[in-house]
Design a protein around this nucleic acid. Structure first.
Lengths: 218, 218
DNA sequence: CATCTATCTTGTCACTGTCTAGATTTTCCT
DNA sequence: AGGAAAATCTAGACAGTGACAAGATAGATG
C-alpha cells in the first residue's frame, strides 16, 4: 500500500493540526467526543462506528485499537455520562436550599436537566443494551450515581437505607418518579398533559418539584 | 429464474402447511408474530428484518409488500403493543376493588405487568425512534392508552383533567412513577434497592402499590 | 379462459462492524 | 545514537443488513 500522500503531508508540516499527522495524539478522547456528537445529531439508533471514525478524521479501523469494538466505545461513553449525571445534580444542589428535602428535589431536577440536555446519551446509559455494564469503569460510575441517590434519601429520612425497608422504598419511588419524568419528557410525552416545551424555566422547575416532592412527604 | 423446487412442492401438497405454499395466506400476521418473537429473543437492538422473514419462512424481500420497510413493521407492532398495554391494565382492574383509587393503582400494576412480560416491545413502544408515531394506527393506539390514564385520574379527583391544572399534574406524576418503575425494573435497576426478582408476586404488588399510591394521596 | 393484480423470490447496491495484514511512528533499551 | 519492539493507524476483505428493482407465480376478476 502507498501512504505517500499522508507521508508528504506530515513531513512538510510535521507539527500542524493533529488531524494531519499519522498518529493522532489523543485519538481516544477525540473518538469519545465524536461519538457523543454523532449520538446527539443522529440519535442512538443510527449510530455508526465508521461515521465516528470519519468525524474524527481517521480510518474506520482506527477505533479498534483504543476501544475493542463499538460496544467498548459506547461503554466508555456511558460511563462518562454517569459521571456527568452526578455533576448535573450537584450543580442544582449548589443552587438549592440546605435542608435535606430541598437537596433531594434539586438532585431530581439535575437528573432531568441532564436527560433534556443529552437525550441520546441518557438513552444509551439507561435503555440501551450496547454498553457492557460489567466493565468496572461503567459499573463504578453508575453505582456512584445510585449512591448519591441513596445518601440523599438517608438525609431525608434519617435512616440508613440498606437497613431500613421504608427508606429503600423511598429511594426507589423517588428515583422512579424522576426517571419516569425524564424519560417521558425526552420522548415528547409530556407535551399533551403539560404543554411542557412552552413553559418557562421557572414554571418547569416548580411543576417538576411539586411532582417529585409528593414522594418525599412522610 | 427457476422456481421449480417451490412449484413441485406446492403442487404435490397444495393444501399443506402454509409455509410450503408460494402464497402464504396470512403473511402480514405471521410477520408481526415473527417480529415480536425475534424482539423478545434477541432484543430490539439486534432486530433484523431478514431474520424476521426467515422465521416466517419467507424470502427477505417479502415483508416489503405488507409493510413498506422495517419502520412500517415496527410501527404496526408498536401499535399492537399499545392496545395490549391497555388490556393488561384492564385485567388488573377487573381483579381490583371498585373505588377510583384502587382502580388507578391496578392500572399502574397492569402497566408494569406489561413491561415485565414484554420488555423489548415496551422499549420499542416508548424509547425507540423506529416506529413512526405520525401513522394513525400507532398514534390512535397510544392516545387511547393515554386517555385511559386521563379518565382514571378524573375518577380519582372528580375533575375534568384538561380543565384542571392540578389534575394534569397528577396525571403526569402518576404516569411518571408507573413508567419509571417499569423502566427501571425492566433494566434490572430495581435489584439493588429492592431485590426485586426475589420477591413473591404479593410482595411485589404491595411494594409497587405503595410507591404508586403516594402520588394519588391528596 | 385470458388478463390483471397481488404476492413472493432473487439479485443487487450501499453501508455496517469486525478481522487481518501491512505501513508508519514512537518508545525503549543497550 | 541506533536498532529492535511496541503502539498506532490504514486499507482491504468478509458476512450481514435494509432497500430497491426485475421477474416469477398464484389468485381474482372479467
Amino acid at each position: 500500500m502507498n501512504y505517500g500522500k499522508h507521508m508528504t503531508a506530515s513531513k512538510t508540516a510535521s507539527r500542524r493540526a493533529s488531524k494531519d499527522r499519522y498518529h493522532h495524539g489523543d485519538l481516544k478522547m477525540a473518538l469519545l467526543r465524536a461519538a457523543e456528537a454523532e449520538l446527539a445529531e443522529n440519535g442512538i439508533e443510527s449510530f455508526s462506528l465508521r461515521a465516528v471514525a470519519k468525524r474524527a478524521g481517521v480510518s474506520h479501523g482506527a477505533p479498534a485499537h483504543h476501544f475493542k469494538d463499538a460496544k467498548g466505545l459506547l461503554t466508555a461513553l456511558a460511563a462518562s455520562g454517569f459521571r456527568r449525571l452526578v455533576e448535573a445534580q450537584e450543580i442544582r444542589q449548589a443552587e438549592a436550599g440546605g435542608d435535606a428535602h430541598a437537596q433531594q428535589i434539586a438532585a431530581g431536577l439535575g437528573y432531568i436537566d441532564f436527560a433534556l440536555e443529552n437525550p441520546a446519551l441518557f438513552r444509551l446509559m439507561f435503555t440501551s443494551e450496547k454498553p457492557d455494564r460489567t466493565v468496572p469503569d461503567l459499573g463504578d460510575a453508575s453505582i456512584a450515581a445510585y449512591e448519591k441517590l441513596q445518601s440523599g434519601v438517608r438525609s431525608v429520612v434519617g435512616e440508613n437505607p440498606p437497613d431500613d425497608p421504608g427508606a429503600m422504598k423511598l429511594i426507589m419511588a423517588s428515583w422512579a418518579t424522576a426517571h419516569g419524568l425524564a424519560d417521558l419528557i425526552v420522548s415528547g410525552r409530556a407535551e399533551r398533559p403539560l404543554n411542557f416545551s412552552n413553559l418557562s424555566k421557572k414554571e418547569r422547575d416548580a411543576l417538576l418539584s411539586e411532582m417529585m416532592g409528593r414522594q418525599l412527604l412522610s
